[in-house]
Design a binder for these strands. Structure first.
Lengths: 344, 344
DNA sequence: GCGTAAAATGTAATCGATTGCATACGGGAT
DNA sequence: ATCCCGTATGCAATCGATTACATTTTACGC
């Protein structure tokens, strides 16, 4: 049985070297540069290493190599399923390239951000992927410029860092244009939290589409929200109670769109017959929704993957120029959008 | 402005020492053991460190300390929202205790597991939290015994490792007993994937509750499933087409419970009037469900937190005895369970 | 058998922070 | 002035792997 090696105390290269009657240099080479060592010694070393269950201490290696081979992904909210797939994409690429991934959920707390910044400044991770839209507290712009940092999903024009984004304005406009093309004239927007740039961008797209369609901008149709189901439900209830209620709602994300659908159903309206709803993101929720949600799909996994690519490329080929990649979205038509009912 | 320090090349302790005219030993002590150094030198060193923007290289520190101060959490499926909260709980505790967390999604792939095992064996992380129910490939039992490893959520009796669990059998039985108490006599079970221990445990609880209630075990009422919405929907459709269909279904998790609800609604049944449904986990989906799902709540965040506690305690106080913590669940009553309709 | 180049191996420095031990300094008591 | 002790500091080893450079061995041609 070519077992995985003995247990007991961990062995170092020196142990292997002693047992094999060679120097640590030879052991190192035998294991990492097999061609630089005679076949006989190579096999001897491998055998002994196996027998001892030797595993190179990665920290020693990292110190010497001056590289941790790992990335830090900073997220506001770990529980948001939107991020999970992004992380997955990044992790996949990282793995391919022999990097590991540290995930940090900050919950928006400065202290926590500062803590993670320390990991970066302390060289424990060598690249940073930010899904938070801003630099973590304790990390100045200058410091960010020193190492690879990539913003994902949420832009920050002030920072001018590398970024992987989608055209939120454009696709929000597209969503609204889709509703308009079907005949909707009273189109509402359920906003995201205004503190976040993506929310402002999506609202901007909404406004732009309205104006391009020659529709009046009615502030009453812009409902404040925060991406949550419950707020979406309440805001929609208010919209539907308007004297001249909307026939369609473009929601800033999927979760709040489900809230909108629920609100409609609760007052006896049918979706999509009486109210069309369109979301943004295409998370798992969109499929589970009843009826299934029409939404804008962001290529989440790809976004994570590209971000990891960028960071690792910068690490390997020097900083290079600061690229901004804009990835394509897609309008996924399911069953919450239809032409408006004829005026009664 | 007491800025965050200059940028430019990174400085080491030796740089600070030279500038301050002291030895690196003094710098180290000034920064980490302020009381062992005269106030004058201490301030001088702090000043210079600040001025240079010095940050200790954590890898150097780790090598010397022989500890990475970090935990690895291994998950099958990062996208499953169930795990996100667990990770969050673990991360919170880890942070409190000055540990960082590496998250690995294995997707059940052996190669990936092996890769992460290497991180552990290579001492790049010093503890392991497994949400996968088994040791990663490449990690023998003996090796696991050498360092702190904790199983969470999914037990593995063969391994006899530390674990943080819930009583799946007991709470599944509780769920079924709840249905029985309301008068249900035809109670079905929508199973999880049988490869997973938690699925078998929940089915076991289902069977036990039936037998305790004196109800016959009808194999036709045990529908195979895989935790997914779609499979849940299909399996439920089949159940409802039975000559003597169930009046209630206990589902192995929330997502498949939503599928069950949808199936019922699609054939014109009302939940809970015509069919009661109860889930397991109490994920976000339970609240979003329509009607809101009655389910068994697992204390996910706490589970993660306790697991991290255990690992770090073992790290700090030696292996200690191999504890198994069983945490309490809770039956969350929402709106998918009611007494069965009177026989027509 | 000798010379020479190539291949194999060894020696020791290196990465950066920490720390046991040794030394130097200062102050108080006798 | 002497001795002692406590505080502050420096020296140098240490953690484990890697690698530039030096040295030894091997192989081959003549």
């Amino acid at each position: 049985m070519a077992g995985a090696g003995a247990s007991g105390p961990r062995h170092t290269m020196a142990d292997v070297a002693r047992r094999a009657g060679v120097s640590t240099a030879t052991v190192s080479r035998a294991l990492t540069r097999p061609d630089q060592v005679s076949p006989k010694t190579r096999e001897l070393v491998h055998e002994i290493a196996e027998e001892l269950g030797f595993r190179p201490n990665l920290i020693g290696r990292q110190l010497r190599a001056q590289a941790a081979n790992s990335l830090l992904i900073l997220v506001q909210d770990l529980e948001n399923p939107f991020y999970a797939e992004l992380i997955k994409g990044a992790e996949y690429v990282a793995r391919e390239r022999q990097f590991s991934v540290v995930v940090g959920g900050t919950d928006g707390l400065e202290d926590v951000e500062r803590l993670y910044a320390e990991q970066y400044l302390g060289r424990r991770v060598d690249g940073l992927i930010l899904l938070t839209g801003h630099l973590p507290a304790g990390l100045s712009r200058k410091m960010a410029e020193q190492g690879p940092v990539v913003l994902v999903s949420e832009d920050n024009p002030e920072l001018a860092l590398c970024a992987v984004l989608v055209d939120n304005v454009g696709w929000a406009a597209q969503a609204v244009a889709h509703l308009h093309a079907l005949g909707h004239r009273r189109i509402a927007h359920l906003c995201g939290p205004m503190a976040r740039i993506i929310s402002r961008e999506r609202r901007e797209g909404y406004r732009r589409a309205l104006s391009q369609a020659g529709l009046p901008a009615d502030p009453a149709l812009e409902a404040p929200g925060d991406f949550s189901f419950e707020t979406g439900r309440r805001a929609t209830r208010a919209l539907l109670a308007l004297p001249d209620p909307p026939t369609a709602i473009f929601c800033a994300n999927d979760e709040s769109a489900l809230g909108a659908i629920r609100a409609a159903q609760q007052v006896g309206l049918d979706v999509p017959r009486d109210l069309s709803v369109i979301g943004f993101d295409d998370t798992m929720l969109a499929e589970i929704s009843d009826p299934p949600l029409t939404t804008i799909r962001q290529p989440r996994q790809q976004m994570g993957a590209v971000a990891a690519e960028m960071v690792i490329d910068m690490l390997e080929n020097g900083p290079g120029q600061c690229a901004r990649r804009i990835l394509d979205c897609e309008l996924v038509e399911r069953s919450t959008v239809a032409a408006p009912a004829a005026k009664s």
